[in-house]
Design a protein around this nucleic acid. Structure first.
Length: 573
RNA sequence: GACCCCGUAGCUCAGUUGGAUAGAGCGGCGGUUUCCUAAACCGCAGGCCACAGGUUCGAUUCCUGUCGGGGUCACCA
C-alpha cells in the first residue's frame, strides 16, 4: 500500500537490470531516470558501463534490452539507452485505482512517518508590527509543509512563535503614551500606527530610544504595570491575527511567543556559560565559537543585562525538544536570518545536545518591490480584498452568462482570490527571490491558482453531466495519447509529495499540479474539435464510463494536491 | 572586506540532483466556441543557459576564478 505505482515499476526495471549486470539494485535504481516521453517511461544510460565492458554504449544497450524480460514492462534499446515503457494494461487501471481508492489522501502515505514528530515554526509575526504581504512566504510555506508531513503520517506540531518580547514593545509602550488613544488600545490598526511613529522617532532621537529600552528592562524585571500594558497590546494583536488566519484557513497547534522563555533565560545562560567561547565583551555576554572563523560572536546578553533573540531561540529549541521529542524541528524563516540560525544551531551542538542535528532552517528568499508608492508595506488583507474583488467581477459575469450556478458568489470569489495568492507564492522555489507584481498576483489566467481550480471544477462538472463517477469501468478503452499522457501526470503525485517533504519544497507539488491541469485541459479540449473524443460521450456507454473514471482520478489528484497547498477547491467557477 | 543566496527567451520563472533536440506562463502575432464552462486549447516568433578555465564519455547542472544583482555581519527580531 505504501509503494506507489511508479516506484513499483521503477524497482522492477532496476531489479532486472541489476541482476543482468551483477550490480546492487539500489545502485542501479539511482541511475534509472524518467525517459523522454517519446522514448518511454523509464531510461537507463549505459555510458558508465562502456569502459568496464570495453564496448560501445549502443551495443551494451542493445544487448541488455535483448536479455531483459520483465513482466509488465516493454523494454527497448534506443541508441545508448535502455528504455522501458509501461504497457497500457494494467498500468491504466493501477493509476486510476490508486488515486480513486485513496481519495483526498492520494499522494500521502500514512506509514511513511508513523511514530515520528516534526515541529514547524512558521508565520511567527511580530506583535504590534504591521502584518505585511511578505508574511505570506513563511505562512504559506509553513502551512503547506505541515500539510505534507501530516499526509506522510508524521505527527505535526505547528508553532506560531510570536515576536512578543523585546525592545519593540518598549517602543510601542513609550509611543503609546505619546501618540496613543487609550480608547483604541484594542484596535490593531491603531497600534501599528503608534509603532510606526515611535520607531521613526527612536531612530532620530536617542533619548526616546533609551526610554523604550528602559521600558523593556522593566518588562524583563517583572514590573507589573509594564507587563499589564504589554499584555493588553499582545491581546489586541492576537485578535487581529486570528481574523487573518481564519480567512486563510490556517490553524496552528500552538500559538506562543518569545515571552514564554522569559523565566528561563538564566538557566540557559548558565548551561552555556561553562562552554568554551563564552565570555564578556564590551559589557555584553557573548558566545565566540572558536572554530567559527569570520563569523561574529552571538550575543546572549546586552550590556544592560537584558536578553536577545539568540538567547530566547536557544531556550525555545530546548523547550521544544523537551515537550515534543521531535525527530525534526523546522524553522520556516527568511534567508536574511541564515547567519543567526547557523550560529544558534552550532551553539546547540557545542552544548552537546544529542538532537542538535535535527534542527533545520527552512530559508526562503525575499519578495521585491512590495512597498506602495508611499513607501508603505503592502498589507496582506488589502491584497486578499483586491483579489477577491477581481474574482467577483468574473464570477458575476459567468453567472450572468449562465455558465455557472452557485449559491454563494461571495464565498466563491473569496476562494478564487485566495487561490490566486497562495499559488502565486507557492509556485516559486522557496530559495529564490521574486518580484511582487499586482498584475501577476491578481491574474487568473495562465498558470495560476484559478487555473488549477478551474480544471478541478471542470472535472466535477463533467462527472455531474456524465452521471457521477462510475464504480467499474474498462481501463483497456483509454487508448488516446492524451489519456495516457494524463495518467503519467496523475501517477507522479506520491513521488512528488515525498520529494517536497524531503526538500521542504512545496513548489514541487505546485508545479506538478500545473502539469496535471494542463494535461487534463488538453484532453478536455479535444472534445471541442472532435465529438468522439468527448468525455461525456453519447452512444458509447463503456467508453464514456472509462473516461469518467479517468476524470474522477484527475479530480481526486487535483483536489488532494490543492488541499496540500492550502488552496480551496470549489466545484463550480 | 568576510560570509550566504542568485545570474536560463523581451518580462516572471522551471529544468527530475551529471544524460537524449534546454521548457512553461506572461507579453507579441495568428487561429479554435450552433459542441462536456474560452478563467480553456492549438500554432508561430523569441536562447553565447552572465563570462573564462577545469573535472568527465557527456556540464545549464559539479569545482575554481572574474563580472553583475540581492542579503547578512555586537547589543532589533
Amino acid at each position: 500500500m505504501s509503494s506507489s505505482v511508479y516506484s513499483r515499476y521503477r524497482a522492477s526495471f532496476a531489479q532486472a537490470l541489476a541482476s543482468a549486470l551483477g550490480m546492487p539494485a539500489s545502485e542501479v535504481e539511482a541511475q534509472v531516470k524518467p525517459a523522454e516521453p517519446a522514448h518511454g517511461d523509464l531510461s537507463f544510460a549505459t555510458f558508465p558501463l562502456a569502459k568496464a565492458q570495453k564496448k560501445a554504449p549502443p551495443a551494451i544497450a542493445a544487448g541488455l534490452a535483448q536479455s531483459l524480460s520483465v513482466p509488465g514492462l516493454d523494454i527497448q534499446a534506443v541508441g545508448p539507452y535502455v528504455n522501458a515503457r509501461f504497457p497500457p494494461l494494467p498500468f491504466t487501471a493501477e493509476v486510476i485505482d490508486a488515486a480513486r481508492s485513496a481519495g483526498l489522501a492520494y499522494g500521502g502515505d500514512a506509514d511513511a512517518g508513523r511514530g515520528k514528530t516534526v515541529v514547524i515554526d512558521y508565520s511567527s509575526p511580530n506583535i504590534a508590527k504591521p502584518i505585511g504581504f511578505h508574511h505570506i512566504r513563511t505562512t504559506f510555506l509553513g502551512h503547506c509543509i505541515a500539510n505534507i508531513y501530516r499526509a506522510l503520517g508524521w505527527r505535526v506540531e505547528g508553532i506560531n512563535y510570536l515576536g512578543d518580547w523585546g525592545k519593540q514593545f518598549g517602543l510601542v509602550a513609550v509611543g503609546f503614551q505619546e501618540y496613543g488613544d487609550p480608547a483604541r488600545i484594542d484596535d490593531m490598526a491603531h497600534l501599528v500606527e503608534v509603532y510606526v511613529k515611535a520607531n521613526k522617532r527612536a531612530e532620530a532621537e536617542p533619548a526616546f530610544d533609551e526610554k523604550a529600552r528602559e521600558f523593556f528592562r522593566r518588562m524583563e524585571a517583572g514590573d507589573a504595570k509594564a507587563l499589564e500594558l504589554w499584555n493588553q497590546f499582545r491581546e489586541t494583536s492576537l485578535k487581529g491575527f486570528r481574523q487573518i488566519y481564519a480567512r486563510m484557513g490556517i490553524e496552528f497547534e500552538h500559538i506562543e511567543g518569545e515571552s514564554r522563555y522569559q523565566g528561563r533565560m538564566d538557566a540557559v545562560i548558565d548551561q552555556i556559560a561553562k562552554k568554551p567561547g563564552v565570555k564578556e565583551s564590551q559589557g555584553a555576554l557573548v558566545v565566540d565559537l572558536p572554530y567559527a572563523e569570520n563569523e561574529p560572536p552571538i550575543l546572549l546578553k546586552k550590556n544592560d543585562g537584558s536578553t536577545l533573540y539568540a538567547t530566547r531561540d536557544l531556550a525555545a529549541a530546548q523547550d521544544r525538544y523537551e515537550r515534543f521529542h521531535f525527530d525534526k524541528s523546522l524553522y520556516v524563516v527568511a534567508q536574511d536570518q541564515a547567519l543567526h540560525f547557523r550560529q544558534v544551531f552550532r551553539t546547540l551542538k557545542e552544548m552537546g545536545l544529542p538532537w542538535a542535528d535535527r534542527v533545520v532552517h527552512v530559508a526562503f528568499g525575499r519578495i521585491h518591490g512590495m512597498s506602495t508608492r508611499k513607501g508603505q508595506v503592502v498589507q496582506l488583507n488589502d491584497v486578499l480584498d483586491e483579489a477577491k474583488e477581481r474574482a467577483a467581477a468574473k464570477v458575476r459575469e459567468n453567472i450572468e452568462d449562465g455558465r455557472i450556478q452557485t449559491a454563494d458568489a461571495d464565498q466563491l470569489s473569496e476562494q478564487i482570490g485566495l487561490g490566486a495568492i497562495v499559488f502565486g507564492d507557492l509556485k516559486h522555489k522557496r530559495a529564490s527571490d521574486y518580484t511582487f507584481d499586482w498584475d501577476e498576483v491578481l491574474s487568473f489566467e495562465g498558470h495560476t491558482g484559478p487555473y488549477l481550480q478551474y480544471a478541478h471544477a471542470r472535472t466535477v462538472n463533467v462527472l455531474r453531466r456524465g452521471g457521477g463517477a462510475p464504480a467499474t469501468y474498462d481501463a483497456a478503452l483509454l487508448t488516446l495519447p492524451e489519456e495516457q499522457a494524463l495518467l503519467r501526470e496523475l501517477m507522479r503525485l506520491p513521488e512528488v509529495v515525498r520529494d517536497a517533504a524531503e526538500q521542504y519544497e512545496p513548489s514541487l507539488v505546485a508545479r506538478l499540479l500545473l502539469d496535471v491541469a494542463a494535461a487534463f485541459s488538453r484532453y478536455y479540449t479535444l472534445g471541442n474539435q472532435e465529438r468522439d473524443k468527448r468525455i461525456v460521450l453519447d452512444g458509447n456507454d463503456a467508453l464514456r464510463t472509462a473516461r469518467l473514471a479517468l476524470t474522477d482520478a484527475t479530480r481526486v489528484t487535483l483536489a488532494a494536491g490543492l488541499t496540500l497547498l492550502g488552496i480551496p477547491t470549489p466545484d463550480n467557477m
